[in-house]
């Protein structure tokens, strides 16, 4: 398992959409390296023959009937939005001006 460095953190921060300063990237890299080192034994603990557990209590086929339930009003839907216009959520431009 490779050590985690500043560039790794920068890439991860980009995937996670969190803006980080250079200092933050540095300190995060140091902290994560320690944590990753502490948890690395996990990868050797269980053999490939051990199945993964995704759900602590195994259930199957939990489904609902196709029946319409409650709906928010447009006002309720938009009530927490930082910005809205015309009954819709307003977001800044998706692409950079080119």
């Amino acid at each position: 398992m490779a050590a985690i460095n500043r560039d790794d953190v920068a890439h991860l921060a980009q995937l996670a959409h969190i803006e980080m300063s250079d200092e933050e990237l540095e300190s995060m890299a140091t902290e994560l390296a320690v944590i990753v080192d502490a948890v690395k034994s996990v990868s050797e603990a269980a053999g490939a023959d051990v199945p993964a557990t995704s759900h602590p209590i195994p259930l199957t086929n939990v489904m609902r009937e196709d029946v319409v339930g409650h709906v928010l009003t447009v006002e309720e839907a938009l009530s927490g939005a930082p910005d809205a216009a015309d009954g819709r959520f307003k977001v800044p431009a998706i692409l950079e001006e080119s």
């Binding site: 319409v68 339930g69 409650h70 709906v71 928010l72 447009v74 839907a77």
Partner: peptide, 18 residues
């Protein structure tokens, strides 16, 4: 994955729940 109605063409954000 939700019981909100699947309807085309209604007023925006009127067929949604949380």
């Amino acid at each position: 994955f939700s019981s909100a109605p699947n309807v085309f063409g209604d007023e925006p954000n009127s067929n949604v729940n949380e």
